[in-house]
């Protein structure tokens, strides 16, 4: 099979590393060759963060380049727009509609663009947008945005059984918050 490329993007501190950890675990369990690449350190301080997840029969490069992503999973709306050049024109964006103003906007030096979902759709991109923060709160914690997004993403991989997603969730989420994360995953799946 051809390598599948998933980018997980967001703002440092939003919990994208746990999402990529769960996804990586799941894909290894499914028998694929997998590579995951992330950037630690400076960029985590509230900056734009990106994690690359690639899987297939044989994966070489650990990173995804412009025009190569099959999916962009975004924790924040502006971040989906920021990385959009990395998407294949036939790719899909799965995004949280939450907006977090970056410092240049807070400092009044730049504007947060409006109607980003519509603008992406106008370019022919398939966009699956939802208020993941509200669903995470419904599940019991604003920190569960990552599992809402994973639940949503799972819809696009019908070949991977639901039990496998559940098993990876259980293997990666701390026991104390397992139940609410399961709820968050289910809410994301339902949308």
């Amino acid at each position: 099979m051809e390598t599948v490329n998933i980018m997980i993007v967001g703002v440092g501190g939003q919990g994208s590393l746990l999402a990529s950890k769960m996804l990586g675990h799941l894909l290894v369990q499914q028998g694929y060759d997998v590579k995951v690449s992330e950037v630690h350190g400076m960029s985590q301080r509230g900056g734009s963060v990106v994690t690359y997840v690639r899987f297939g029969d044989k994966v070489y490069s650990p990173i995804i380049d412009k025009g190569e992503a099959d999916y962009i999973v975004s924790f924040e709306l502006l971040e989906a727009a920021r990385w959009i050049e990395y998407l294949k024109p036939t790719g899909r964006v799965v995004t949280n509609t939450q907006k977090m103003e970056p410092m240049p906007v807070i400092a009044g030096l730049a504007k947060y663009p409006e109607n980003l979902v519509e603008k992406m759709q106008a370019k022919g991109i398939q966009v699956d947008a939802m208020d993941c923060l509200a669903l995470a709160e419904e599940a019991g914690s604003t920190k569960a945005v990552n599992m809402v997004l994973m639940g949503r993403l799972s819809k696009y991989f019908p070949d991977i059984p639901a039990e496998a997603w559940q098993a990876s969730l259980e293997a990666n989420v701390p026991a104390k918050v397992l139940e609410l994360n399961k709820v968050a995953f289910a809410l994301g799946q339902k949308g």
């Binding site: 301080r45 490069s61 190569e68 998407l87 410092m103």
Partner: peptide, 30 residues
């Protein structure tokens, strides 16, 4: 990156989608 190497060797860049809006940067902050 794979794309950078390919382009430096004269291969065409992959097809991409662009938005017209200027996307404000999100540098790390305190």
């Amino acid at each position: 990156t794979q794309g950078r190497i390919a382009q430096c060797l004269g291969r065409a860049a992959k097809e991409t989608v662009k938005l017209e809006d200027a996307i404000p940067g999100r540098p790390p902050v305190m």
